[in-house]
Amino acid sequence: MKVAQKSLLAGVLLSMSSIALAAGQLNLYNWGNYTNPKLIEKFEKETGIKVTITDYDSNETALAKVRAGGHGFDLAVPSHSHLPIWVSEGLLANPRVDQMPNFKNVADEWRNPDWDPGRQYSAPWQWGSVGIMVDTSVYNGDINTFGIVLDPPQELVGKINVAPEMNDVITSAILYLGGEACTGDKQLLRKVRDKLVEAKPKWKSMDYGVIEKFAGRDLAASLYWNGAAFRARLKNPDVRYGYPREGYSLWADAVVLLKDAKNVEEAKTFMNFIMAPENAGLISEFARYANSIVGSEKYMPEDMATAPEVIIPKEFIGFGKFYPTCPPDVQKMYTAIWTELQK
């Protein structure tokens, strides 16, 4: 009896530990809850390649793990701000994405981004922005400004949330005070710190998970990402998303091929696969952010194709920008401000 139990356990362990690294396999390292199972199913069916997905929760964790080596992943999905670091640290192979057959579907403005010149390294996944969510039944004024959280109108005091993301929050405050992202200007940074410290008592929380709190009307404003604003509006029709005029940050996540990948051909097949409109549509359908593939709108749910949170209204396009990761000495000041803010 005991022997039988032991061998059963050993069998379970053995079958679990055989992570296949053979051909016909692909190991994707992606943000949690970001990959549409339908997309993977379709890919496996069309190509016969078996995909294993492993999650990460932040750019820093992903970078640390891949840099340490021995991870066994083939593809990862870093954000644009970190992508140049992955390139300069020598973590990536160059699969020449720009020469793949489906590259023709990539929209013009995404063919040569600053953070991947010539678009050789990365295949587009999704992109979005950092802006302002407001429940317009509580506050009816202008919402296209970071002033909503940094100089909040009386109606909103105590009902504000700020995403607990150091870089997004400090960049937004710098833009609000008229500076440039990653500025080393100490005069300005001091003002940034004072502004944040002054505004914080008027906030309720610095937290994720805003959708249910907007739906339950526990919150009335937040500095947050556009996809969540979109989903919150579906639950509470009074929620609107503002694109700050002072300038706001855009972000994009893109699929890259790791240098120590064992399944290179399979990985390239996947990169090409996600640039087909029907497949990019599946990506957006699941995580509810925009992609960069022309013609994918046809394959998205109807409510998405017209949503002002997903498709940036023309008058606000010019204010958004992609910002890089700041240099180390600036980052140090950011961390000091952030610690001071939360002490």
């Binding site: 640390a64 150091m166 961390t335 952030w338 610690t339 939360q342």
Partner: peptide, 13 residues
């Protein structure tokens, strides 16, 4: 715990 986590994460220290 959060302070230490910050140094290994976004604080990059």
């Amino acid at each position: 715990g959060n302070l230490i986590e910050l140094q290994f994460g976004q604080g990059r220290n």
